[in-house]
Nucleic acid binder design. Structure first.
Lengths: 346, 346
DNA sequence: CTGAAAGCGCTTACAG
DNA sequence: CTGAAAGCGCTTACAG
């Protein structure tokens, strides 16, 4: 249609409206008073030409871009997808775009993306997920360029950066107490190897046993290879063979809980009549049969909060305030996978 | 640290290296020969200053941005999350960024985002998901500005735009045939109201019955209110009361299949011994107990393909080629939710 | 109340 | 082989 492939500029509008570019700019941005007459002319020209102001050029001139970067391991993980929505919805209100970068837990990808991000002169960065130790290096890189950064679901050993994360230990403590209150005494902790998150959840489990004067049995603390149902299935199947003396399982995530459910069913035990299961995350809990009781992690809200903090930092007034550190406590969601042993006895 | 809050420019580098900006530009972009000596100086300066070239400025000058927009209903839907990864991974290789926009099926949001997108002078757009009829208007808007567009999982009634979608009818036909081959004769079609996708899947179901000379029973074709397990649960529970004469269910998605599983279990029937279930999408199929047999939709690959097509369009040579229309056939994934009735008989 | 002009950080002919 | 200068599309003092 259009002969030249260049998109329209403010000059074209100015010419069409018979005014100066300064005036066009002023009416677009309402940055200074313009007489009704000229406003009318400009608006007419904009409509006639189907003109969209060029954000890029504006960003170059004003030295501020209107995009923020959101870095995660993988958008296919529902945890990050939910955080992402929280981030998007909030930044959108402040009329920012958000560009998404998946690292797949790879340092190489992380740093490659970081280069792009820094070249893109984003206004701020939100980083989430448990990356490798090198993430510290990445963070310094960002901070050296004094780009506002907030971190969610992050490693704990960071300081000097706004962080928002889950109180894993407390959540696990509450999950375990829940089981104990139902009368369970022999409770499995189904964790995952090499995961800080899982490590903390195990700590919470231990604390709950301790406080309730229950014996901690080494054999009931198991760790599977990764956050997948299949690994967890094998681990719990094995446990049924070697040490089938438990009545409940605290699974460190919904995903591993699903594996535990499979092994339990295979053993021809019923959930919750024979075995109670409580999970963590609330990603898939509402889709299982029976529905899993789980510790709900408010990922959407965490993303929202992260974006709010970032927005605040972006208003330069609060640029130098001390870093925020917010720890969110998961809440118990009752499903159908836990049973009250005491009620049965009475 | 840095006194001025402006980020570094090519000028700073030029000055530090004692060369002209043209030379700095040349070494960064390898756009013309530069003597080893000057290359060395420039590189040293870049490192010393910790300089990142400004993509925005480059985009302004070259009249091409390096970002594409990806518009979807909701990143929390695993279908779109998977497509998104396909898009990201592919665009990334071509060193594009992708900005993500969620519409939640709202026209208002769609058009608001579109404004932002057009102002951002993105290089191309990928649109996916079943939006309202207004999506046609959105598409013309994009095409009027001759911005390359490809559409995935889209309405079917579009022409003149690169499209990549699922052959729902064929997939459903194969799912149903699968059940028929296993000896099932009374098969439920569990669909969803007001969904084109589901409508097409129902067509495939009917075709399979017809070709296999099975009677089509009105009572076995049910439609639930939306793609949620709970609605499907109620619908199938109702069906067990009113017309419990079937041995298999073709569920139009994994999510509704989960509801059907719940109702089946509630009725104290076993899957697959008493009732076979086959689903569609392969979003949650691998997480259910038993694992659902399902029709796998290669969302990642579709996103990848969409991005490839977009990349090709971006090379202006193929700018005017006729629009592509690719229909992908889902593949059967065997789970544990279907049973061979015939084998039992023999 | 409005316009002419400088400049944001780049790239790219054009000289030399 | 390299530099000076114009210009991408804006915004914003500075005049008037």
């Amino acid at each position: 249609m259009t002969k030249k492939h260049r998109s329209l500029s403010i000059k074209d509008v100015a010419q069409c409206a018979g005014v100066s570019v300064a005036t066009v700019s002023a009416v677009i941005n309402k940055s200074r008073f313009v007489s009704d007459e000229l406003v009318g002319k400009v608006l007419k020209a904009i409509n006639k030409l189907n003109y969209y102001p060029n954000r890029i050029a504006r960003g170059l001139k004003t030295q501020k871009s209107l995009t923020v970067a959101y870095i995660i391991p993988d958008i296919n993980n529902p945890i990050f997808a939910r955080v992402a929505r929280g981030v998007q919805d909030t930044m959108e209100k402040a009329s920012y775009d958000v560009s998404l970068y998946n690292t797949d837990f790879s340092d190489k990808k992380l740093f490659r993306h970081l280069t792009t991000i820094l070249e893109s002169r984003v206004r701020g960065i939100i980083l989430s997920g448990w990356h490798s130790p090198k993430v510290k290096e990445a963070i310094s890189l960002i901070q050296d360029l004094s780009i506002p950064l907030v971190v969610v679901h992050s490693p704990r050993n960071l300081d000097n950066v706004d962080s928002i994360l889950i109180d894993d230990k407390k959540g696990a403590y509450e999950a375990t107490c829940n089981l104990i209150e139902l009368g369970h005494k022999r409770i499995v902790s189904l964790g995952v190897k090499n995961s800080t998150t899982s490590y903390l959840r195990e700590e919470g489990y231990k604390k709950a046993l301790l406080e309730n004067r229950l014996r901690r049995e080494k054999g009931l603390i198991v760790r599977t290879d990764n956050f997948s149902p299949d690994c967890a299935f094998l681990t719990i199947r094995e446990l049924y063979k070697s040490n089938p003396s438990f009545t409940a399982i605290f699974a460190h995530s919904d995903v591993v809980a699903i594996g535990a459910m499979g092994a339990t069913l295979e053993k021809e035990l019923r959930i919750p009549q024979d075995i109670s299961i409580i999970a963590f995350d609330d990603t898939y809990a509402s889709l299982t049969l029976p529905k899993l009781s789980t510790m709900h992690v408010p990922n959407y809200e965490m993303g929202k909060r992260a974006a709010e903090i970032l927005s605040t930092r972006l208003k330069s007034s609060s640029f130098n305030k001390p870093p925020l550190y917010e720890e969110i406590i998961p809440t118990f969601i009752e499903g159908k996978s836990t049973k009250d042993l005491l009620r049965e006895l009475s």
